[in-house]
């Protein structure tokens, strides 16, 4: 039988993998995919806690699921804006490699 701890560990490992993508990769699109993985890890732990905190009448905690719904919506908006920024950046610089974007570096 799966417990809350199993889901929390999977969610944390997913977050760690996303963080690894953000820290280790140099392609700006793959960094973005790492961000998506981290958002999904947060969603997974929220849904696991919703199932864990089921009420006395045997319903899952719908507040958490509504929060997950909001997170998914905000993530979709964030992806659209972020990708538009990446495209604008690529038009200016012809690169998607973060080490070539050092204009603001002191």
């Amino acid at each position: 039988m799966l417990t809350l701890g199993n889901y929390l560990i999977v969610s944390g490992l997913l977050f760690a993998i996303g963080l690894g993508g953000v820290l280790l990769r140099r392609n700006i699109l793959v960094i973005f995919m790492g961000l998506e993985l981290m958002l999904n890890a947060a969603n997974l732990s929220l849904v696991a806690f919703a199932r864990h905190g089921a009420t006395a009448v045997g319903l899952p905690d719908y507040n958490a699921q509504v929060l997950v719904f909001f997170i998914i919506t905000v993530a979709a908006a964030e992806v659209a804006v972020g990708l538009a920024i990446i495209v604008a950046l690529y038009r200016q610089r012809q690169t998607a490699h973060v080490e070539d974007l050092n204009q603001l570096k002191f």
Binding site: T3, R51, A54, G58
Partner: peptide, 8 residues
């Protein structure tokens, strides 16, 4: 964390 989920 070790408890199974409550029944629905």
């Amino acid at each position: 964390a070790a408890h199974p989920f409550p029944a629905l």
